[in-house]
Computed example of a mutant assay.
Amino acid sequence: MKTSRLLATALLLLLLALRTAYAQAPVIQVSDPSGDDKGPGYYGYPGADVFKPGVFDIVKFEVYVGEKTVTFKVYFRELGGNPWGGKNGFCLQQVHIYIRSDAPANVPAGSSAIALNLNFDPSWAWHYAVAIGPCWETPPEPLPRGQCAAVYRPFDVVVQDGLLKVAVEGNSIVATVDKSVFEYGDLANIKNWKFVVAVASHDGFGPLRVRPVGIGKEEWLIWGTATADDKQKVAIANAIKFGIEPRVFDIAVYSPEYPNGITAEQQYEWLSSFDPDTRTPATLPPVLAKQISQLKAQLASVTQERDSLKAQVTSLQGQVSSLQGQVSSLQSQVKSLQDENSKL
């Protein structure tokens, strides 16, 4: 009898352990390359000592779906502590999670990021944006009007401390959202949703609470040309001039197309897809931008071929004109000979 009870207890404990492990397993988990916190590939950190190496470097993103909540965890190489005492446990970062669900086609979707100078390809336009800030004010005011976390939905905004909770665990920033917030979309199908996670430098005094990008190295500006070549320096200078520079250090991505995230090189390509000529911000992912670039290249090729043909035609016309002159000269010589013969 005693042995049976021990076995039953052991089985119960095992089931509870398995249930706990299952509940704690992320439904989505992607790693992000370490050391790619360079925005479009050449950004550097502001010069102030508070910005420790790695504080803007996302290394992992996880999504947990529980019985009543959905939890998002964004891991950093180094969180950098909380030197300015943000209520949410951090103060250097501002994290955005853009989510395209399987909502019906008639549900509105956002085509651009909030304050980051980024656009989204129509197939990636977001139904939910989880914007997470350090938060100082009471009651909480949502980013970018305030500095606290919020979930932007198709028809309203959910501000933190009710259906949205924010915390810090080690070097990760954690947002836990009540399931009822995700009204438009089937959470059972979340693995087929699309996620773009972006980290900016939070600036309570900056435009829309995000730290701006500068050309040179300054104490409180993103260093926009830290490792840029001459062409990139011109590009980012023009982007800043027209207000389309990406205000992002790092992005992590998940979708059925990118189940393992994206590479550093892909990130640099995506964030470099801004176009100062048309004053268009970078597009994530740059699907249409690539198509437009390809069309421009094709047009340039066709134009070059046209110009080459025009040059050939002009050359041929010159040759024809020259031949016509030679024929005319020969005709004159023949006539002259005929006139001389007629006198003989």
Results as ranks from 00 to 15, higher is better:
residue 2 K to N: 15
residue 8 A to D: 15
residue 11 L to E: 12
residue 11 L to Y: 11
residue 17 A to L: 15
residue 19 R to A: 15
residue 26 P to E: 14
residue 28 I to H: 14
residue 29 Q to M: 14
residue 30 V to L: 13
residue 31 S to Y: 15
residue 31 S to W: 15
residue 31 S to N: 15
residue 43 Y to R: 08
residue 45 Y to V: 11
residue 45 Y to N: 09
residue 46 P to V: 03
residue 48 A to K: 15
residue 48 A to W: 11
residue 50 V to R: 12
residue 50 V to H: 12
residue 58 I to K: 10
residue 59 V to G: 04
residue 70 V to H: 03
residue 70 V to G: 00
residue 74 V to A: 10
residue 74 V to Y: 01
residue 74 V to T: 15
residue 76 F to M: 05
residue 79 L to A: 02
residue 81 G to Q: 09
residue 81 G to Y: 10
residue 81 G to L: 09
residue 85 G to K: 03
residue 87 K to D: 11
residue 95 V to G: 05
residue 95 V to T: 13
residue 95 V to L: 03
residue 96 H to D: 12
residue 97 I to L: 06
residue 97 I to M: 02
residue 100 R to D: 07
residue 104 P to Y: 04
residue 105 A to K: 14
residue 112 S to N: 05
residue 112 S to P: 00
residue 115 A to K: 02
residue 127 H to M: 04
residue 135 C to V: 01
residue 137 E to N: 10
residue 139 P to H: 06
residue 140 P to E: 06
residue 145 R to I: 14
residue 145 R to P: 00
residue 145 R to D: 11
residue 153 R to E: 06
residue 154 P to Q: 02
residue 155 F to N: 13
residue 157 V to E: 06
residue 158 V to D: 10
residue 160 Q to I: 00
residue 163 L to E: 13
residue 164 L to G: 01
residue 166 V to F: 03
residue 166 V to Q: 00
residue 169 E to S: 09
residue 172 S to V: 01
residue 174 V to A: 01
residue 175 A to I: 06
residue 175 A to L: 00
residue 181 V to R: 05
residue 182 F to V: 04
residue 186 D to P: 03
residue 186 D to F: 09
residue 187 L to C: 07
residue 194 K to C: 02
residue 195 F to A: 01
residue 196 V to N: 02
residue 198 A to C: 07
residue 198 A to P: 04
residue 200 A to W: 00
residue 202 H to G: 01
residue 202 H to L: 03
residue 204 G to W: 05
residue 208 L to P: 00
residue 210 V to P: 00
residue 211 R to T: 03
residue 212 P to I: 02
residue 212 P to Y: 01
residue 215 I to Y: 00
residue 217 K to R: 13
residue 224 G to H: 04
residue 227 T to L: 06
residue 230 D to N: 11
residue 232 Q to S: 11
residue 232 Q to P: 02
residue 234 V to G: 02
residue 235 A to P: 02
residue 239 A to T: 14
residue 241 K to I: 04
residue 243 G to A: 08
residue 246 P to F: 03
residue 248 V to A: 05
residue 252 A to H: 06
residue 256 P to W: 09
residue 260 N to K: 15
residue 264 A to L: 08
residue 265 E to N: 12
residue 269 E to A: 14
residue 270 W to C: 12
residue 271 L to Y: 06
residue 275 D to S: 12
residue 279 R to T: 15
residue 282 A to K: 05
residue 285 P to Q: 11
residue 286 P to G: 04
residue 292 I to D: 05
residue 292 I to N: 11
residue 293 S to T: 10
residue 297 A to I: 02
residue 298 Q to I: 03
residue 298 Q to V: 07
residue 300 A to I: 03
residue 302 V to N: 08
residue 303 T to Y: 11
residue 304 Q to N: 10
residue 306 R to A: 07
residue 306 R to E: 14
residue 307 D to K: 14
residue 309 L to Y: 09
residue 310 K to H: 12
residue 314 T to R: 05
residue 316 L to A: 13
residue 321 S to V: 03
residue 324 Q to T: 07
residue 327 V to A: 13
residue 336 S to D: 08
residue 340 E to N: 08
